[in-house]
Simulated assay, not measured.
Amino acid sequence: MRPSPAEIVRTLVAGRLPGLVHLACRPGLHHVRHVTDPDGRVLLLVPVVSDLVPALRPRDGADAVAAVLDVLDLPPVAGAPSLGRALVSGWVRRLDGERARAAALDFAAVAPTGDLLDVGTRFGLFRFEVAEARWERGGEPRRIDPVAYAEAEADPLHATEASLLSHLTEHHADRMTGYLRRQLGLAAGPADHAPRVERIDRYGMLVTFGRPGARRRARLAFGRALTGPADLARLLRPVLGARSASGDRRR
């Protein structure tokens, strides 16, 4: 098992990676703070004193502005492969009143910030439902069905992937190396040939192994989809011993 293209797009646009907004028929790119709500709709938190707010103001009698959110994955460790780029588009509308308050709660659930208390004064909240989604990797664009996008879930490990990998390397390197060798059927060898985990998601781990300059990759599946870091800790506890992947000890 591995993440579907729709799940990857939902993961990338969830709100924990930097995003850029392109506006139709208007030059320039805009850095934005964004999240997606439980239905996959994009929320933008924008300072009222910015170039983006007037750019998001509809023109010529329109009630919304066409926009594209562009998010590029940032690999958690050097040399790890990127998940690619997600581009989702829709019609952006400003939220006011009760709709803005409800959207602020959705935003805070992903990225809590005190600036949400100033929505309506110093900040504006904008939202668009995703009308079109694309996933690009290796220069190959792929269209994602909007229904599949809306029904997909972001990976629950993505936000903590870098810290999880760092913890496994710093505190469990020997046990993880032994475990990975057994899973891959590798004999013992020099330290620079040792297998190591490059990426991790709810379905499994991407492992690199072999001599420097000629390393290969293999994917090890978990057998079931994980629900979050605590679930990963429980899964790896027999491998790592009493100390879990999150650093907790057994009570």
Results as ranks from 00 to 15, higher is better:
residue 1 M to K: 14
residue 4 S to V: 12
residue 6 A to N: 03
residue 7 E to I: 00
residue 7 E to H: 00
residue 9 V to C: 06
residue 13 V to E: 07
residue 16 R to S: 07
residue 17 L to D: 12
residue 19 G to R: 06
residue 22 H to G: 09
residue 26 R to C: 06
residue 26 R to V: 11
residue 29 L to G: 07
residue 31 H to M: 08
residue 31 H to I: 08
residue 35 V to P: 08
residue 37 D to W: 00
residue 37 D to L: 13
residue 42 V to S: 02
residue 44 L to R: 03
residue 45 L to Q: 04
residue 46 V to H: 08
residue 47 P to C: 04
residue 53 V to P: 13
residue 53 V to E: 09
residue 54 P to W: 07
residue 57 R to K: 12
residue 57 R to D: 10
residue 57 R to T: 14
residue 57 R to E: 15
residue 57 R to I: 12
residue 58 P to Q: 10
residue 64 A to V: 10
residue 64 A to W: 03
residue 65 V to L: 15
residue 66 A to Q: 15
residue 67 A to Y: 06
residue 70 D to V: 13
residue 70 D to C: 09
residue 72 L to H: 12
residue 75 P to C: 06
residue 76 P to H: 03
residue 77 V to R: 11
residue 77 V to S: 05
residue 79 G to R: 04
residue 80 A to T: 04
residue 87 L to Y: 11
residue 90 G to P: 01
residue 93 R to A: 15
residue 93 R to P: 02
residue 95 L to F: 13
residue 98 E to K: 15
residue 98 E to D: 15
residue 99 R to V: 14
residue 100 A to L: 10
residue 104 A to M: 08
residue 106 D to E: 13
residue 107 F to H: 06
residue 111 A to F: 13
residue 113 T to Y: 02
residue 114 G to Y: 02
residue 116 L to R: 07
residue 120 G to R: 08
residue 123 F to Y: 04
residue 124 G to Y: 00
residue 126 F to G: 10
residue 126 F to L: 11
residue 133 A to C: 03
residue 133 A to M: 07
residue 134 R to W: 02
residue 136 E to G: 01
residue 137 R to W: 03
residue 142 R to P: 04
residue 143 R to D: 15
residue 148 A to I: 12
residue 149 Y to M: 12
residue 153 E to Y: 00
residue 153 E to T: 13
residue 155 D to C: 05
residue 156 P to Q: 06
residue 156 P to V: 02
residue 158 H to K: 06
residue 159 A to V: 14
residue 164 L to N: 02
residue 166 S to L: 03
residue 167 H to Q: 05
residue 169 T to H: 05
residue 170 E to C: 08
residue 174 D to L: 03
residue 175 R to G: 15
residue 176 M to K: 09
residue 182 R to H: 03
residue 182 R to E: 09
residue 190 P to V: 06
residue 196 R to A: 06
residue 200 I to H: 08
residue 201 D to A: 12
residue 203 Y to C: 15
residue 203 Y to R: 07
residue 205 M to H: 05
residue 205 M to Q: 06
residue 210 G to W: 00
residue 212 P to C: 01
residue 213 G to S: 09
residue 216 R to S: 14
residue 218 A to Y: 04
residue 219 R to L: 12
residue 220 L to A: 10
residue 221 A to M: 10
residue 221 A to I: 07
residue 223 G to T: 15
residue 224 R to H: 15
residue 227 T to D: 11
residue 230 A to Q: 11
residue 232 L to F: 13
residue 233 A to G: 15
residue 234 R to N: 10
residue 236 L to Y: 01
residue 238 P to K: 09
residue 240 L to I: 13
residue 241 G to N: 11
residue 241 G to L: 05
residue 243 R to P: 06
residue 243 R to C: 14
residue 244 S to D: 12
residue 246 S to N: 14
residue 248 D to K: 14
residue 250 R to G: 03
